[in-house]
Simulated scan of single mutants.
Amino acid sequence: MMMEIAYVVFEKSTLWIAQYLPSFYSGLCALLISALTDLRMRQPLRQILTGSLVCGIFALSTSALLTWLGLPENSGAFLGALLGFVGADRLREIAIFLVYRRIGSNDKEDQK
């Protein structure tokens, strides 16, 4: 019984990966490049794990936008590599900047 459940889960997972391979590859590229960059900079293990997971999840979610933007799905590898090089800290800074620009705040004290 347990073997059948494990087989079904494995089969469904591989079918999902095959169907969304460009998005999966994009997230994997971002995760690995971010982790390797943080390792090179001698970051703590906790920061390496969380930062690379954030980059991977962000790349997975943004790779769905590629077709909406008119780009081919296989450009996800470039997107993942780009997000991995940018890193989680810089992605957060960019997001905060965009939010403050949208609401019209220029005060540096508001951003802290």
Rank of each mutant, 00 (worst) to 15 (best):
E11T: 08
R40A: 05
R40C: 04
G27C: 04
A18D: 08
A6R: 11
L15H: 04
I17M: 10
L31S: 02
S23Q: 12
I5M: 14
W16T: 04
R46I: 04
I33Y: 03
K12V: 13
A6V: 15
R42N: 12
W16C: 02
I17E: 04
L36K: 05
M41T: 07
Q19A: 05
F24P: 00
V9Q: 03
A18G: 07
I17G: 03
I5S: 12
V9C: 03
T14M: 13
A35S: 05
R42K: 14
L45D: 06
E11R: 13
A30S: 12
L45R: 02
L39T: 09
W16A: 04
Q19E: 08
V8D: 15
A6M: 14
Y20Q: 00
A18H: 05
Y20E: 01
V8A: 15
I33A: 06
L45E: 05
A18R: 07
P22L: 07
L31I: 04
P22G: 05
I33V: 15
S13P: 02
S26V: 05
R40P: 00
L32T: 14
L45Y: 04
L15K: 06
G27Q: 01
L21P: 01
F10C: 11
A35V: 03
S26H: 07
R46N: 05
A6W: 15
Y20A: 01
A30K: 01
I17F: 12
M3P: 09
Y20G: 00
D38W: 04
M41P: 03
F24E: 00
P22Q: 08
L15N: 07
C29A: 12
Y25H: 02
M3F: 11
V9D: 01
L45N: 03
L39W: 09
R46W: 08
Q19H: 07
T37S: 15
A6H: 13
W16M: 05
Y25V: 08
S34P: 03
W16S: 01
I17C: 05
P22N: 09
V9I: 14
T14Q: 15
T14C: 13
E11V: 06
L45P: 00
L15I: 14
W16I: 08
Q43V: 11
F24D: 00
L31H: 03
L31Y: 06
L39N: 08
L39P: 03
P44F: 09
R40F: 07
A18E: 10
S34E: 11
L32E: 06
Y7F: 15
M41L: 11
